[in-house]
C-alpha cells in the first residue's frame, strides 16, 4: 500500500510569554491509504498540535506534511476534522449541521438535503434530522459531527479525542460504530486519544508519542484481534494494552515531573 499521509521531519515551536516552547520535534510518520492509525500520548505532548498541522489549521516550524504526495498548505475538503467538543453550530438542526460541510463544498441545495439524510442514517440518527444540538445527548452530537465530516466525502478523517467527553457506555458504542463506518467507507483515519484501551481497540497501528517535546517513540502494530464478543478481555488485547501502557508510563511520569518542576519555579 502507498503512503497516503507523510510527516517529514515535522517540528513545531511556540512563543509563549517570552519563552520558546518546542511542542513537536522530528516527527516522521507514514499513514497508509485506508489505514486506521491511532496516535496516543500523555496530555500536553502536542498530539492535538500535530492534528492541527495535518488539518492545515497551523503551519509547522520545520518539515512538511504530504497528503497524496502534495504538501499541506491550508485546510481542505480532502481532510475532515472531528473535534472533541463537537463544534456543531447551535442555531442549525442536525441536518443543517451536516449540510454545512456540503455548503463549503458547493454541493447544490437539493443534493445537500439528500446527502445529509443519508449520512445521518449512516451514523444511526435517522429521524433526528430536525433536532437542534441542545436537544441531543453528547453521543448524538458527536454522531452528527462525524456525519458532517463524512458527508463531504474527504479521503482522510482526522479525529481529535472525539470520544473523550462521553461516558463509558456511549464511548464503547461509538467506537464500534466508528469501526463499522470505517470498514464501510474505506477512509483513512487518524485518531488521537490518550486512552490506551481505545487505541488498542480501534487502531491497526498505534503511534506512541513522548512527552514534550513530542516525538514518535514507537509505532506498535496491532493485528486484527479475534472477533469475539468481548475483545477487551482477550489475552492478546491485554498484551497490546500492556505494551503501550509500558511505553507510555515513563512519558507520563516525565510529563508529571516537568509539570511539578514548572510549578515550583
Amino acid at each position: 500500500m502507498t503512503a497516503k499521509i507523510v510527516f517529514e521531519n515535522i517540528g513545531k515551536v511556540f512563543q509563549a510569554r517570552g519563552t520558546t516552547v518546542t511542542a513537536l520535534q522530528e516527527i516522521n510518520l507514514d499513514v497508509k491509504d485506508g489505514e486506521f492509525l491511532v496516535i496516543v500520548g500523555p496530555s500536553g505532548c502536542g498530539k492535538s498540535t500535530l492534528l492541527d498541522l495535518l488539518g492545515g489549521l497551523a503551519e509547522p516550524s520545520s518539515g512538511r506534511i504530504l497528503v497524496d504526495g502534495k504538501p499541506v498548505t491550508g485546510p481542505g475538503l480532502d481532510r475532515g476534522v472531528v473535534f472533541q467538543q463537537y463544534a456543531l453550530l447551535p442555531w442549525r438542526t442536525a441536518q443543517g449541521n451536516v449540510e454545512f460541510g456540503l455548503e463549503a463544498k458547493h454541493v447544490p441545495r437539493r443534493e445537500r438535503a439528500a446527502k445529509a439524510r443519508e449520512y445521518l442514517d449512516l451514523v444511526g440518527l435517522a429521524g433526528f434530522h430536525d433536532r437542534y444540538p441542545h436537544e441531543l445527548s453528547g453521543g448524538m452530537k458527536q454522531r452528527v459531527a462525524i456525519a458532517r465530516s463524512l458527508a463531504f466525502d474527504p479521503d482522510v478523517l482526522l479525529m481529535d479525542e472525539p470520544f473523550a467527553a462521553l461516558d463509558a457506555q456511549t464511548r464503547d458504542g461509538l467506537q464500534d460504530e466508528l469501526l463499522r463506518i470505517w470498514e464501510k467507507t474505506g477512509k483513512t483515519v487518524v485518531f488521537i486519544t490518550h486512552g490506551i484501551e481505545e487505541a488498542v481497540y480501534l487502531g491497526q497501528r498505534v503511534a506512541v508519542m513522548t512527552s514534550r517535546p513530542g516525538r514518535i517513540k514507537q509505532v506498535v502494530d496491532v493485528p486484527l484481534l479475534s472477533q469475539s464478543e468481548d475483545v477487551r478481555s482477550d489475552p492478546q488485547f491485554a498484551h497490546y494494552r500492556h505494551e503501550i501502557w509500558t511505553l507510555l508510563r515513563d512519558e507520563v511520569n516525565k510529563a508529571r515531573n516537568e509539570e511539578l518542576e514548572a510549578n515550583r519555579v
Binding site: 488539518g55 492545515g56 489549521l57 491550508g74 485546510p75 481542505g76 475538503l77 481532510r79 475532515g80 476534522v81 473535534f83 463544534a87 453550530l89 454545512f100 460541510g101 463549503a104 463531504f152
Partner: peptide, 9 residues
C-alpha cells in the same frame, strides 16, 4: 466553531 469552519476551508 471558527476553527471547525476554517477546517472546512
Amino acid at each position: 466553531l471558527i476553527k471547525s469552519a476554517r477546517s472546512l476551508g
